[in-house]
Design a protein around this nucleic acid. Structure first.
Lengths: 236, 236
DNA sequence: CTGTATAAACTGATGTATCAGTTTTGAAGA
DNA sequence: TCTTCAAAACTGATACATCAGTTTATACAG
């Protein structure tokens, strides 16, 4: 199916940063680049719009979504709701195997971040790899509950936040050395309320800071009143 | 925009029960009925698919979504996560006006349900009206936090559950007489943890019962292996 | 040089036609 | 009566053409 193929290409291009927020997306240009008609491209764009990665105004244009500060904050709230519950479910129902693997994953995440924070330990590739490890850690918690609906909701929220906030967090700042191990140990201890509380603190950590930085970078976008396009050069 | 119009028509038709789960949806037939081409209808269907109200297999057909037991359970889990957090936020930040209005709304919901449970108090219209009042009560809690992302997520989850479970809950069963007033009183008392706990109990109330009933009614659907169509009669 | 109006270029939205895959139908064979 | 299977009918997917609305470019007036 061509539409699914176009959707996947666009999604990965956006999430890998090759199409940063605000980039104009033309159905026709994309169709030509991908060697297909404008219809499947339009379908792909429609789907990405439903996921929140893209926004379009009728007959004006489509672009990679530029989130507002409220939306970033809203997704943090949403993520707090979802991951807090995810942690609770983990504490209630995780098996010994789940627990052991979570501790291992937490150690890996901490090691990656600590290594990244060291002098001359930073590189964009390592940063990207570390972020993937980090996401895998959180998704492991979610998957332990065996509820795909919850897992998917968490992943959607994380994807959006990552994409929107990535530009605002270009500079890496270290976190507590045992940040994820401490969290994992509380989760595996089997007390739902404490697990939920620990996850809440984890999600809220530096949240306001990130939002403030995002707000500072978002002052220029004066809303979606106008949909910018590229220069026009064809036939004249 | 024709697509939006078609989308709205289809959505309301599904949610009002005129197109029960499993009903085949043909782009062409719908296009003819609505006086438009198949393209905007297809776009509308694609959007409803993203919302989970509709499902389609390529070149086989489209139908109103038939949920699996796992999906119903998953949406209950999701709703628990979202509404629990919503209650917590309400307890943390609701104003006195919010609190007063919530108590009023709770009284109205209880009154409606109690009246419905009385001998000869039941009618489908009253039932529908009561359910709307009930949903409005929960959405009022969510809206008090002022986070549209959360509110929308809750509404989506509630819409899906309502549509899927409605057929399984045709017979109305009474609930505790002060069920919503008790919840509201805890929420307005301003203790986040207690508010969350109360909402958790509220969402879980009779959840297993409803799921069991849904499972009993869902035995016949042997998965989406085949996409059924209506009879064929044109030209022969 | 600056502001403004007008035309060109571009955009998404929609209609029509066609393709390839799936389901239904119904007749032929057991 | 029951099973088999091929053609008909129907489905969603896609291409192409066109329409109406928006943005950009440019000529022109100040």
């Amino acid at each position: 199916m061509l539409a699914a193929q176009a959707c996947e290409k666009l999604r990965s291009a956006i999430l890998e940063g090759r199409l940063p927020p605000g980039t104009p997306l033309s159905r026709r240009r994309l169709a030509e680049e991908m060697g297909m008609s404008a219809v499947p491209v339009g379908e792909a764009i429609r789907r990405l719009e439903g996921e929140g990665l893209v926004e379009s105004r009728p007959r004006a244009g489509t672009r990679v979504r530029i989130a507002t500060v409220d939306e970033v904050h809203g997704n943090y709230v949403l993520r707090e709701a979802l991951e807090t519950h995810s942690a609770r479910l983990f504490a209630e129902s995780a098996t010994a195997v789940d627990a052991a693997r979570l501790l291992t994953a937490a150690a890996k995440v901490d090691a990656s971040y600590n290594s990244l924070a060291m002098r001359r330990g930073y590189s964009p590739e390592r940063r990207a790899r570390t972020e993937r490890t980090h996401i895998a850690f959180h998704m492991r918690i979610a998957k332990a509950a065996g509820v795909p609906v919850l897992t998917n909701a968490i992943e959607r929220s994380r994807v959006l936040l990552f994409n929107w906030v990535f530009s605002a967090s270009s500079e890496f700042e270290p976190m507590p050395e045992r940040w994820h191990r401490d969290l994992a140990e509380i989760l595996v201890s089997g007390h739902p309320d404490e697990a939920a509380r620990a996850m809440r603190a984890h999600v809220q950590y530096r949240q306001e800071e990130v939002i403030a930085r995002f707000r500072a970078l978002a002052v220029e976008s004066s809303g979606p009143g106008r949909m910018t396009r590229g220069p026009q050069r064809n036939s004249r």
